[in-house]
């Protein structure tokens, strides 16, 4: 009985639907294209979407807490820019390359947290403002120059478990993949196994009740927005290492794409809902969709149209189902 209720719950969950869609899409792409279901391609997808995945996970945590952060792309950009400038001028190793963006991310996150908590204005407004401030100041100070010429050790990257596939190509768990998996693991543990993670869910579910129960809301706000900043800093590092340049406009502007991925994964803008698995699947769907379209030779111009369609269809189905459910609930026993 117990097993079956759990199974039923999973079968009814949005994650399951999303999984089915991804599986279906994967199957179609496997049949239609030669390259989709190859280790090389899947690795490519994983690597190139890892920084989006990292930011999505951070955003999910903010959404669960009942807030939203739009400024994370600016945070990531500021973090990677300062990191890149530093290691190019002063050298340093992986620790420096890691510590700088992470520290900056946490600091900018703390700014958001302090403003959201003290000004009592919805976080979407605050973070739109801070997005403009962070980004504007960065471009003003740096005049928008691109950064190349990373030190060799940074250009070469960092990898574990090099291995060769049957076809002789070499693969390795590169920096992006290692970091992405670590972020998944840490966030999953945080949300499901720690007291603070559960408090974040509770606060997102009912802020007033959390206040009455004596939750330390200030601490929770700081934790949530700093964690987002922390992950944005990491994402900045990963993205810089991936493309070997820091261009101020390469991440900013993709906020809503990440929001879309997280919401597709079942997180609610009203707070309190969202799972790690859902977010992973949401990012996966968008990644596979774009990859598939590329492999099919569809011009990249069409990608946005398809993503827009997916968002519209999925949110419409969810909303419509909820409407039907409400109608059923309204009935009484006669």
């Amino acid at each position: 009985m117990k097993v079956s209720t759990g199974t039923v719950r999973f079968l009814k969950s949005s994650e399951f639907y999303l999984f089915l869609v991804i599986a279906g899409l994967g199957a179609i792409l496997t049949v239609v294209t030669e390259d989709f279901f190859s280790l090389e391609n899947l690795f490519d997808v994983l690597v190139s979407y890892s920084f989006l995945g990292i930011m999505a996970v951070g955003l999910m945590v903010v959404l669960i807490s009942g807030g939203i952060d739009i400024s994370f792309t600016a945070t990531a950009t500021v973090a990677q820019y300062i990191m890149a400038s530093f290691i190019i001028q002063h050298g340093g190793g992986w620790w420096v390359a890691f510590l700088i963006p992470v520290t900056i991310g946490i600091m900018l996150g703390a700014v958001n947290a302090a403003l959201v908590y003290n000004l009592r204005v919805h976080s979407i407004i605050i973070t739109i403002a801070t997005l403009n401030v962070f980004y504007g100041v960065l471009i003003f100070v740096t005049r928008g120059k691109w950064i190349y010429n990373f030190p060799d050790w940074f250009a070469e990257g960092y990898s574990l478990f090099d291995f060769s596939a049957a076809d002789g190509t070499d693969y390795s768990f590169s920096l992006s993949i290692i970091v992405l998996l670590a972020v998944f693991a840490v966030t999953g543990f945080l949300l499901n196994r720690t007291s603070i993670g559960r408090q974040i869910y509770a606060m997102g579910g009912n802020m007033d009740a959390a206040k009455r129960m004596g939750f330390n809301l200030l601490k929770l706000h700081f934790f949530v927005y700093c964690y987002m900043g922390f992950l944005a800093g990491i994402a900045g590092l990963v993205q810089a290492q991936l493309v070997q340049t820091v261009a101020p406009n390469s991440i900013v502007g993709r906020e809503l794409e990440v929001v879309a991925a997280v919401v597709l994964g079942g997180a609610s803008l009203a707070g309190g809902a969202g799972t790690l698995l859902g977010t992973i699947l949401g990012v996966t769907l968008i990644a596979i969709m774009q990859n598939g379209l590329t492999l099919l030779g569809v011009s990249s111009y069409w990608h946005k149209i398809v993503i827009g369609m997916i968002i519209l269809i999925s949110v419409s189905i969810t909303a419509y189902n909820r409407k039907l459910e409400e109608r059923r609930h309204a009935e009484i026993d006669v």
Binding site: A202, G204, G205, D208, A209, R212, G272, A273
Partner: peptide
């Protein structure tokens, strides 16, 4: 009166 529960938990 509103019970102050967490509906999502």
């Amino acid at each position: 009166q509103d019970h102050s529960l967490f509906p999502n938990l």
